[in-house]
Every structure is written in C-alpha cells, then in structure tokens.
Amino acid sequence: MSHVKTFPSRARSNDHERMPGCRGSLLLMLAIYSNPKWLSVVRGAVERLTETLGFPPAQCRSITRAVDEALTNIVRHSYGNRPDQPIAMYFRRAHRQHDGEVQRGLEVLLCDRGLAVNPTALQARPLEEIRPGGLGLHFIRQSMDSVEFSRKGPTNRLRLVKYLAQANSSL
C-alpha cells in the first residue's frame, strides 16, 4: 500500500474562527484521488446532498457545477493531471446573519497538496472573448456566494459557500 497518499486534513488550527459566517456540523466528507474518472461520482453525491438540503433544482445544478469545476482545476493545475494524488472534500452546514435574519447554507472545503496556487491567477477571463478554456472559474464564481482560496502549509484550501433562500431552508 505504499502508493497510497495521505489525504489532506480539514484544518490544523482554529482558523475557522477567522472565516466570515459560522460553520456548522459536518454533513459529508469525500476523499478521492485526482483521476478525472471520479468527477462523476462526486457530482452524483453533491447533487443528492444539495437536493436533500432543500436547494432549488437550478442551485443544485450550479453548486454541483462549481464543485466539479473546482475539482477539475485541482486535477489540471494543482496536480498537473497526475491521477493518483489525494483530494479531500468537507461539506458542512453554514449560517450567517443577513438582513437581520439567520441565513443557512452549505460550505464546501476542497483540500489538495499540489502546487501552491497564485491567488492573482484565480481570475475569470472576460466572456467577450470567444475562445476555449478559462470558463471554469467563471462558473464557480457565478454559482457561489463566497469563494476563498488559502494555503496552509502544504495544503491548498478552496472554500465555497452557498446560502439558501429562507423559504427553501431545510437545513
């Protein structure tokens, strides 16, 4: 089993205290290797999770798309298309105060141990250009309420949060 890589852990410090909004309980944890064949498996899980949490169908699709595109970016850019590198995902309840009310949502934390990502490179390209590529980050930003990247030691951490409209909340 010497080929088995250690999967990155969620947090090594109390850094969650610095994040905006409050973090809730862990709903789901997934660990995969960076082979693109596992992308469809994760999409299936995220679709079911978001449906169960009461997100409307369009948001279930957009959250699933955001996670899928984020994983693809990890495989391509962080791991340079190597298929045997570890990726860990943590899905938690999230909530925040919004317009005087508590708004509930879903936090997705994706962790990898690939190359350090230059945050300034995380810019979506202008959509006026008709050319292949560069759309993934655009899809992520359009889908989520919050997109934060950080590097903790050897671990890249991408935190995505989507809040649920009050009427739909079953969180």
Partner: peptide, 16 residues
Amino acid sequence: RYIDSSGVASLVEGLK
C-alpha cells in the same frame, strides 16, 4: 445530462 467547461471548450474549438 451534464457538460462542464472543458466540454464547452471542445464545442468552441469545433465551432472555430
């Protein structure tokens, strides 16, 4: 059922 940004990129390449 589903198409991601790399699939869209493939279609854009076909169009070009």
